Simulated assay, not measured.
Amino acid sequence: MQEKKLKVKAASRLVTESQELSQLNKSEVLDLACGSGRNGLWFAEKGHRVTFLDKSLANLSVASESRIGSMSSQHTYLAWDLEDGSAPELEQNKYDLVLVFNYLHRPLFPQIAAAVKPGGVIVYETFIDKQAEIGRPRNPNFLLKANELKNEFEKWTLLHYFEGEVLNDANLSYKAQLIARKPDC
Score class of each variant (00 low, 15 high):
46 K>C: 10
107 P>M: 13
114 A>T: 04
52 F>V: 10
49 R>E: 14
130 K>R: 14
123 V>H: 05
31 D>F: 08
35 G>W: 08
75 H>R: 09
17 E>P: 04
97 L>F: 12
76 T>V: 14
51 T>R: 11
110 P>C: 10
164 G>L: 07
60 L>S: 07
157 T>N: 04
143 L>A: 02
172 L>C: 02
30 L>W: 14
70 S>D: 15
67 R>D: 07
169 D>P: 00
166 V>W: 12
179 I>K: 08
27 S>C: 02
174 Y>D: 03
3 E>Q: 15
134 I>S: 00
98 V>I: 13
159 L>G: 05
139 N>E: 09
130 K>V: 01
41 L>F: 11
153 F>C: 01
84 D>R: 06
181 R>V: 08
52 F>W: 09
111 Q>R: 09
173 S>N: 11
90 L>V: 03
104 L>A: 06
11 A>F: 11
108 L>F: 08
134 I>A: 02
124 Y>S: 05
124 Y>T: 10
14 L>Y: 12
117 K>R: 11
137 P>H: 02
156 W>V: 03
69 G>Q: 13
165 E>K: 11
57 L>W: 12
127 F>A: 02
156 W>R: 03
133 E>V: 01
15 V>C: 05
21 L>K: 13
46 K>F: 10
113 A>K: 15
76 T>C: 09
64 S>T: 12
86 S>E: 14
161 Y>R: 04
176 A>K: 05
181 R>I: 07
164 G>F: 08
129 D>Q: 13
36 S>I: 01
148 E>G: 02
47 G>C: 12
181 R>T: 06
58 A>I: 06
166 V>S: 07
158 L>G: 00
64 S>H: 13
161 Y>L: 02
138 R>C: 00
28 E>Y: 12
69 G>F: 10
25 N>V: 03
37 G>N: 07
59 N>V: 00
111 Q>L: 13
48 H>Y: 07
74 Q>H: 12
63 A>T: 04
63 A>F: 04
111 Q>V: 00
182 K>V: 03
48 H>L: 03
96 D>L: 05
102 N>T: 03
151 N>Y: 01
93 N>Q: 11
37 G>P: 09
155 K>T: 13
64 S>C: 13
107 P>Y: 14
159 L>T: 00
50 V>P: 06
9 K>D: 05
13 R>G: 02
1 M>A: 14
14 L>D: 09
48 H>A: 04
148 E>N: 01
96 D>T: 08
81 D>Q: 04
110 P>S: 14
151 N>V: 00
112 I>H: 10
118 P>A: 12
125 E>C: 06
181 R>Y: 07
29 V>L: 07
180 A>W: 04
41 L>N: 06
122 I>Y: 05
50 V>H: 12
45 E>Q: 15
132 A>K: 08
152 E>L: 05
171 N>M: 08
122 I>W: 08
122 I>V: 15
79 A>C: 05
140 P>T: 10
110 P>F: 15
182 K>Y: 07
179 I>F: 07
52 F>M: 11
35 G>K: 09
70 S>P: 08
137 P>E: 01
130 K>W: 07
14 L>M: 13
128 I>S: 04
163 E>N: 01
10 A>S: 15
133 E>N: 08
152 E>R: 05
62 V>Y: 08
110 P>V: 12
61 S>Q: 04
45 E>H: 01
24 L>S: 06
146 A>E: 11
183 P>E: 15
36 S>M: 02
40 G>L: 04
5 K>W: 14
8 V>Q: 15
